[in-house]
Measured scan of single mutants.
Amino acid sequence: MQRVNMIMAESPGLITICLLGYLLSAECTVFLDHENANKILNRPKRYNSGKLEEFVQGNLERECMEEKCSFEEAREVFENTERTTEFWKQYVDGDQCESNPCLNGGSCKDDINSYECWCPFGFEGKNCELDVTCNIKNGRCEQFCKNSADNKVVCSCTEGYRLAENQKSCEPAVPFPCGRVSVSQTSKLTRAETVFPDVDYVNSTEAETILDNITQSTQSFNDFTRVVGGEDAKPGQFPWQVVLNGKVDAFCGGSIVNEKWIVTAAHCVETGVKITVVAGEHNIEETEHTEQKRNVIRIIPHHNYNAAINKYNHDIALLELDEPLVLNSYVTPICIADKEYTNIFLKFGSGYVSGWGRVFHKGRSALVLQYLRVPLVDRATCLRSTKFTIYNNMFCAGFHEGGRDSCQGDSGGPHVTEVEGTSFLTGIISWGEECAMKGKYGIYTKVSRYVNWIKEKTKLT
Rank of each mutant, 00 (worst) to 15 (best):
G246H: 06
G105L: 07
L20V: 06
E159N: 05
S385E: 11
R3W: 11
T271M: 08
C157G: 00
R404N: 05
C178S: 01
S70L: 14
E434P: 15
L52D: 13
I275Y: 04
V195E: 10
P235K: 09
V278G: 03
V228A: 12
V248L: 09
T264L: 02
V273I: 04
I336G: 00
Q2S: 08
T332I: 05
V353K: 12
L163H: 01
N258Y: 00
N306I: 07
D93V: 14
S255K: 00
V353M: 08
E418K: 05
A317Q: 00
E54L: 04
E98Q: 11
S156K: 06
C407Y: 07
G427Y: 00
L321T: 02
H267D: 03
T276H: 04
S204W: 07
V296I: 07
N306S: 08
Y312H: 10
T209H: 08
Q2M: 13
G349S: 10
N306F: 04
V326N: 06
A173D: 13
S70G: 14
H303F: 10
D249E: 10
S354M: 15
G398N: 04
G94Y: 05
D111Q: 12
N222I: 10
F388S: 13
Q57Y: 04
E165H: 05
G280T: 01
Q143R: 00
D223V: 06
E66M: 09
P175M: 07
I7R: 14
T215K: 06
L60I: 15
K293I: 04
R384L: 12
V273C: 05
L19D: 00
N166F: 02
Y115C: 04
E79S: 06
L52P: 15
N48L: 11
L244C: 02
N245V: 08
F123I: 13
L321V: 07
N127P: 03
P120G: 07
C69R: 06
G432F: 05
A366M: 09
C145S: 03
V56F: 06
C252I: 01
E456K: 10
T381I: 14
F87H: 15
Q96G: 13
N113T: 14
I275S: 02
F176H: 08
P375E: 06
Q237W: 09
E165R: 06
G412W: 11
H314V: 03
S255P: 00
E73D: 15
S70T: 07
I297Q: 06
K137W: 03
A266D: 00
Y441V: 13
F224T: 07
Q185T: 09
I7K: 09
M394Y: 06
G105K: 11
K45Q: 12
V153G: 12
R298M: 03
S255L: 05
G94R: 14
V377S: 04
W431L: 04
V353L: 08
L325I: 02
I40Y: 09
K311V: 09
M437N: 04
M8N: 08
S204C: 14
E129Q: 11
I256W: 00
W261F: 04
T225C: 13
C108F: 02
K51A: 14
T194F: 11
C108M: 02
D198K: 09
H303C: 04
L460C: 12
Q2L: 10
T417W: 01
R404L: 09
I299F: 10
M6H: 06
N306Q: 09
S114P: 10
M6C: 07
V353T: 14
F78N: 15
E53G: 09
C119Y: 02
A9Y: 05
Q96D: 10
K440S: 09
T194H: 13
H400A: 11
H282K: 05
S385K: 13
Y201C: 14
W431R: 03
E73Q: 06
V278P: 00
A380T: 09
T29G: 09
R140S: 07
S365W: 10
P235V: 06
N42A: 08
W356P: 11
Y444T: 01
T381S: 12
C407D: 03
V447I: 15
N245S: 06
R379N: 12
N166H: 03
K234A: 14
R226E: 07
C18N: 01
L372A: 07
C170V: 00
